[in-house]
């Protein structure tokens, strides 16, 4: 399903800052971010480490307060998390005392999604299949590898079948082969369900392959440096023409240079 013209997430002049209590100062993580995201759109955020990507999706999810501007989802100001927005966490955030299956079922216990027991079981099973963890239902997170934990986090988010998927570097700890397969799955799910996805990655290839738009964020304070449209036809995964095309190389180079400029600032320090 292609992106419609209806905006689902609207950020206007969004500013996020953190109090640094020790120094009686505050750190401005994101400054004046304005971004409209259309329903069904796949938006990828890239930028150097510490530029405020996680802060941005935390603001969309309603986990952290804004210090200025606004974020609206379907026209309503975001004040708290809601069942329409699921999140894949950068640090997995699995409850260590729960098994894989029980972790994936957590959302069902916390809120009434109006699902029957069979539907729940079916969804858990399918999302586990999707991330290739069938057979690990009864394992505890501490018995899994980093990449496996990350995949449980993905399964948990997908099992809620959200309208909006906020994914914070969801494939960062996963090996290249599995990663490619999961990228294809991600693209397929988003195409099939019409989910809106805000996706963070450090991989420029991943950004181009998955994103309808790639938003490059600058280093401290994070501002939108440039928004790059990517209009390859979908599905792009498993389509070797995309990666070998001239346009791909040009895009990759362009985004690479944008991010590199910013990353250089990081290493130069402040």
């Amino acid at each position: 399903m292609p992106a419609s013209n209806e905006n689902i997430i609207v950020a206007e002049d969004l500013t996020i800052s953190y109090d640094l209590h020790r120094e009686r100062k505050k750190l401005i993580a994101l400054q004046n971010i304005s971004l409209d995201i259309k329903k069904g759109e796949f938006v990828v955020l890239v930028g150097p480490s510490g530029c405020g990507k996680t802060s941005f999706i935390n603001a969309i999810s309603g986990l952290i307060p804004k210090s200025g501007g606004s974020v609206k989802v379907r026209g309503e100001e975001v004040t708290a998390p809601g069942p329409d927005r699921a999140m894949v966490f950068q640090d997995y955030a699995l409850l260590p005392w729960r098994t894989v299956e029980s972790n994936i079922r957590l959302p069902y216990e916390l809120q009434n999604l109006g699902l029957s027991e069979e539907e729940k079981q079916d969804r858990v099973k399918k999302s586990l299949e999707l991330v290739d963890l069938t057979g690990f239902e009864k394992s505890f997170p501490y018995e899994l590898s980093g990449g496996m934990k990350q995949r449980v986090g993905i399964a948990r988010a997908l099992a809620t079948n959200p309208d909006i998927l906020l994914a914070d570097e969801p494939f960062a700890a996963i090996d290249a082969m599995t990663r490619e397969a999961m990228q294809a799955e991600m693209e397929r799910i988003v195409m099939e369900t019409g989910q809106t996805c805000v996706f963070i990655t450090h991989s420029i290839d991943e950004a181009i392959l998955l994103g309808d738009r790639v938003v490059v964020i600058s280093y401290r304070p994070g501002k939108i440096k440039e928004i790059v449209d990517v209009d390859f036809p979908r599905p792009r995964m498993n389509n070797s023409e995309v990666k070998t095309s001239k346009k791909y190389a040009v895009l990759r180079d362009h985004i690479w240079n944008l991010v590199k400029d910013e990353a250089m600032q990081t290493t130069r320090g402040e």
Partner: peptide, 15 residues
Amino acid sequence: TEKSLLAAAKVFGAN
């Protein structure tokens, strides 16, 4: 209590 665990529970609907 780990902040990220609280965040996860909040995101998935905990009161």
